[in-house]
Design a binder for these strands. Structure first.
Lengths: 151, 151
DNA sequence: CTATTTGTAACCTGCCTGGTTACTAATTGG
DNA sequence: CCAATTAGTAACCAGGCAGGTTACAAATAG
């Protein structure tokens, strides 16, 4: 699920921008452009990692599980990535020359992946939000205008 | 085609180990564990990049296009990767908030990918061959024993 | 009790990768 | 020239997976 990471960042960024007000999966799904069920699948993993808290029923929805300054992009990554391997590992059989080559390449890829994870650890949701909030707002404004024009 | 990169390294490493003797796609396919057609698809791209030269007909096969010391893993990577993006870029629509997030993440991924490519550029086929040759030989020996045992 | 909202299982579909088939082109040797 | 061998390539097939949808159960506010 390569898009789940993006969806997770969208959710946490959006919740940050709303400052404590619970948002329904329906709203989050609409702003991202997917279905509520797909979004809840992501929310489910975020909840298990403690990154969001959810309440059902009328007036329910999701809020941040802890301050956005204390959530790194790495936290989101590990919460949403089942196997800790994003890069194209080569499964392969456990014998034969192909496996030897694959192991060699995987070593190089693992280095690159480690560097990526370190980088993700240095950025918090709060930072990300402050950097992209203006553009997000502009985009939301644009799509809202389209809706108005259609109505 | 995530396995093509591995296949390409297998081919070039094997040709290096054989030192100028042409090898048929049938032999290369068997040693890697795939079909000759799949392997020729890879050879076709390697040829277009000048990394191998091929001759048809009796006694034909492929040889290195230039010395293994002058072929980097990056050369192989670019020859076999159509779009210059290995890492999970998020395609997405050209509008909306999802796109803004995706662009942000893609920036971080692009940094990581650049680091990976730099790393690949520092390793030549010759180097790789010297590091994995012993294990490859052992693996080939093992599979040959299996074949003998079955016959 | 009802309306709302989440949780989750089950299924469907489209895409991509890898594999196979089938046929053509080139090259060598008799 | 003919036959055998080998590569080139198009076309189709199958399995896996991501993402989407449907359906229904569970929780919660009023």
């Amino acid at each position: 699920m390569t898009s789940e990471f993006t969806i997770g960042l969208h959710v946490l960024g959006f919740l940050t921008a709303r400052g404590g007000e619970p948002l329904t999966s329906e709203v989050l799904a609409r702003t991202y452009g997917t279905s509520p069920v797909v979004l809840r699948r992501v929310l489910s993993k975020l909840r298990q990692a403690g990154l969001v808290a959810t309440r059902r029923g009328v007036g329910g929805g999701s809020v941040l599980g802890r301050p956005s300054s204390e959530i790194s992009l790495l936290d989101v990554y590990v919460a949403l990535t089942d196997e800790p391997e994003l890069l194209p590992r080569h499964p392969g059989e456990n014998t034969g020359p192909a496996q030897v080559l694959a192991a060699y390449i995987n070593g190089i890829y693992a280095e690159a992946e480690a560097a990526l994870l370190e980088r993700l650890a240095t950025v918090s949701i709060e930072q990300m939000d402050s950097e992209v909030r203006p553009e997000i707002c502009a985009a939301l404004e644009a799509s809202r205008l389209v809706s108005v024009a259609r109505a």
